[in-house]
Amino acid sequence: MPAGLSRDFLEQVCQLFFERFNVAGFAVLERPMAQIYATGLLSGVVVDIGYEQSDISPIYEGFILQNTRTSTSIGIRDCENYLANIFRSNQSVMAAASPSDSPCDPQTAQQFLVDFVQHIWKEGLVRVPSDGQTADVPEDEGVTDIAAVLVAGKEKAVIETGMKKKATAKASAAEQARAREIEALDLVTVEFRGHSITVGKERHRFCEPLFDPTLLKPIQQVPVDDTQDQPLPLQDAVGLAVRQAEVDQRQAIWQGLFVTGDLGNHVKGIGVALQSRLSPYILSNPEQQTELQPRSIRVVNVPEYFAEFREKGDRLATFLGTSIVAKIVFNDSQLKSFVSKPDYDERGPHAIIGMSPALF
């Protein structure tokens, strides 16, 4: 469940499950806790990027620090509108959105652009460079760690890369020159609604509004003079949330930066990009460091030994963490971390409050 729900609401949910669905047992687990459990940690900060807003939840030793939780009203929808606006300067995109021989009305063209942007990022064609850097793909030096490839489930990608290199080696000089040009420009051709659309590096600007919401001002959906309720950049919201934690808790929290949500498995490098922008919140002068001063920020992910989640990534962390907790809690009646049917018959809906550690 979302974090921060009232006890009265949780009692109503407990009553619903027992009296409407006749369940044998019921437990409450807040979503940020499920997400951090999926990484194998008990402390960290969960950044859940949603469609309309992004939630930040610092966690220490298995408990959400409720007084530090915050959110910023910027999410995937803003990124989609921003990139759709950028694509208006791409002739290939606009020729498909509103052909010159049969132009569409502005609303239809805008919807086409937004749908195309959704297709782009969900196909994994977007990556996020670190602050002040561009994302480079390391070259394969010809040495492959077969064991590591198999554990990571990437054998198909390695085979495809090898076949591509062999084909390139046999290509003519003109074809190789064209391939180098495409690689330099980072061009991709996407099939979308019967159109072949070519886009370049501009697609990697998709997540820029998360880190700089002022970029949304020129877009029609955001009033230009609206500065009163300007949402916080994601890095500032995370930094301020962690700063509200106790000083002796911050070092452990910074060692578990976990970025999740729908973007988690589709947009490459978003965790590292956020990490690089959080550096101002870490003391960089070694002479001023103390035992309690955070020295680094560590990005965490769902471990690769969860084979079923290799291709699904971090966006299903909530489901994975909940599954782990359910297996432990419901298989050990001595823990008293869930409400059984006899417990509900004896104490009613209020039983959920006394049998959920996070609600004590």
Rank of each mutant, 00 (worst) to 15 (best):
A24P: 04
G25K: 03
G25A: 11
G25R: 10
F26C: 07
F26Y: 10
A27E: 06
A27K: 02
A27S: 13
V28G: 04
L29M: 06
L29C: 09
L29N: 13
E30C: 05
E30G: 14
E30H: 04
R31A: 09
R31P: 09
R31N: 10
R31M: 02
M33P: 14
A34R: 05
A34L: 14
A34M: 09
I36A: 04
I36K: 07
I36D: 06
Y37W: 11
Y37E: 15
Y37P: 02
Y37I: 12
A38C: 04
A38E: 10
A38I: 01
A38R: 00
T39S: 02
G40V: 05
G40Q: 08
G40E: 13
G40Y: 12
L41V: 04
L41P: 09
L41H: 10
L41M: 10
L42G: 15
L42E: 11
G44N: 09
V45L: 00
V45S: 09
V45A: 04
V45E: 01
V46C: 04
V46Q: 00
V47P: 08
V47G: 02
V47F: 05
V47M: 05
V47C: 05
D48Q: 07
D48F: 13
D48A: 09
I49G: 03
G50M: 02
Y51E: 10
Y51C: 08
Q53Y: 13
S54P: 08
S54G: 13
S54A: 10
D55E: 15
D55M: 03
D55G: 07
I56G: 08
I56W: 01
I56Y: 04
S57I: 12
S57D: 12
P58L: 04
P58A: 12
P58D: 14
I59C: 15
I59N: 06
I59Y: 08
Y60F: 07
E61F: 08
E61T: 01
E61G: 09
E61A: 10
E61W: 08
G62H: 02
G62R: 07
